[in-house]
Simulated assay, not measured.
Amino acid sequence: MTTPENFVPTHVNSEAKAKAIAEFEQNWLDYNSATAAAIDIAQRWGMGKTTLVDWLRAEGKWPATAQRLSSLERENARLRRVNEQLRQRLADLGEEHP
């Protein structure tokens, strides 16, 4: 992908970044989707949607990221339980057949 000749990068100060992220966290559920919220909030703060989404993802605050993390944590806990059960069964079998 090439950058258009008329592209002018803009600088967003850290205060605007923090406020946009905070606004997203407080209000995104009021929108039809996280993406719709990001589009609206980013536009009001004078930045692109992708910029805001990238910041949110980097901080683990993008809803899909947080949801995926929770899902993986639950799966990890389940696998640890299964692993412990299997270890116990192996130990029990070892006691039955010395």
Rank of each mutant, 00 (worst) to 15 (best):
M1R: 04
T2R: 13
P4I: 05
N6E: 05
V8C: 03
V8G: 02
V8P: 02
P9E: 01
T10Y: 00
V12T: 12
N13T: 03
N13K: 02
A16K: 14
A18Y: 02
E23N: 09
E25A: 08
L29N: 15
Y31V: 02
Y31A: 02
Y31C: 05
N32C: 12
A34V: 01
T35Y: 08
T35R: 13
A36E: 15
A36M: 13
D40R: 10
I41E: 04
Q43Y: 12
W45G: 06
G46D: 10
M47F: 06
M47V: 13
M47E: 11
G48L: 11
K49C: 13
T50M: 14
T50V: 15
T51K: 07
T51H: 08
L52R: 07
V53D: 12
D54G: 10
L56N: 09
L56R: 00
R57T: 07
R57I: 04
K61M: 05
T65S: 15
A66I: 05
Q67I: 01
R68Y: 09
L69A: 15
L69S: 14
E73I: 04
E73D: 08
N76F: 03
R78I: 07
L79K: 04
R80Y: 02
R81L: 09
E84W: 05
L86Q: 12
R87A: 14
L90V: 13
L90N: 15
D92E: 14
L93M: 12
H97A: 13
P98A: 14
